[in-house]
Structure formats: C-alpha cells, structure tokens
C-alpha cells in the first residue's frame, strides 16, 4: 500500500520542508532522519524558500508508469535561494521556454494517481516565477 508511505511523507512533500543544521546551517531536502552530514550537528525541520533558479534540467520521454500520462515532462535541478539543491518536476512551462538559469517558484500540484479510483498524490512542483 504505497498510499501509506506517501501519507507519511506528505508534510515535507506539500510544504517544501527540509532539514536545517543548528550548528553549521547546512540544509537538506528531503529532510534527513539523523544528524548533519557535514558537521554532525543536530537537525531541525524548516520550511525552505519557495524561489530558486534552474541549474539543469531534462525532458523525460520514457516515463515511469505512474507518470506516463505526463510524458514528455521536464524535471529540474533547482537551487533555492538559501542554497538548498533539489530535483522537482517543472510545470506551466513549454518545452521551448525552459532555460538554465531561469527563476522558478514552488507550486502545489497533483503528482500522480493510482488510476481513476485510486488515491491522488499531491506535492510540490516548480513553475516559472509569476510576479
């Protein structure tokens, strides 16, 4: 029952929650369970900044089953304003609009579902900044 794992992950997945080291300030997304990799310091959950820039990306043409309906889609390697780096799907962007270096912001979207009768899994995606 993947729904249970997905439920357990929902808060950090919905709210862009990462870990922050109380000693050295290092950030991690997704959050880590134990201590800071860099200094061994204690970690606390923190909501990460929602804006960042695109460091790299790909367009997925051969998608896993749960994402096949979305193919081709873009997955970005993003650096948030605080330096945290993460992977997330990009949305509301055309294939010819995506550029390395573009400003992006977090949005809340359906990620995938288990068929018409199954659970809907929501989470963070990123879109070009709307101001």
């Amino acid at each position: 029952m993947p729904e249970i794992t997905e439920w357990r992950d929902r808060l950090w997945r919905y709210r862009l929650v990462g870990s922050k080291c109380l000693s050295c300030g290092a950030r991690y997304y997704p959050p880590r369970n134990s201590s800071c990799i860099k200094c061994g310091g204690e970690l606390v959950d923190v909501e990460l900044p929602r804006r960042g820039k695109l460091l790299s990306y790909t367009v997925i043409y051969q998608a896993p089953g749960i994402y096949r309906f979305a193919s081709p889609y873009i997955v970005g390697f993003i650096e948030l304003e605080d330096g945290t780096r993460l992977f997330a799907m990009l949305t509301d962007v055309e294939l010819d609009e995506v550029k390395v270096g573009m400003e992006v912001e977090a949005t809340f979207r359906k990620l995938y579902t288990y068929g018409d009768s199954g659970h809907i899994v929501y989470g963070i995606k990123f879109r070009p900044l709307v101001t």
């Binding site: 790299s56 790909t58 997955v75 390395v100 990620l111």
Partner: peptide
Amino acid sequence: DRRVMKYSGLTEAGLAAILARLYME
C-alpha cells in the same frame, strides 16, 4: 532514493541527462 525519484518524476536516465546538461554548461 525512493522519495527523491518518485516525487520528482525523475528516472535514472533523467538524472544522467541532468548531469550531462550541467557538465555541458
């Protein structure tokens, strides 16, 4: 990493592609 890959829609080839583009840039 289950969480990173599943929730981002990334595939192993997709990750390779992200590395390749970063390398090229």
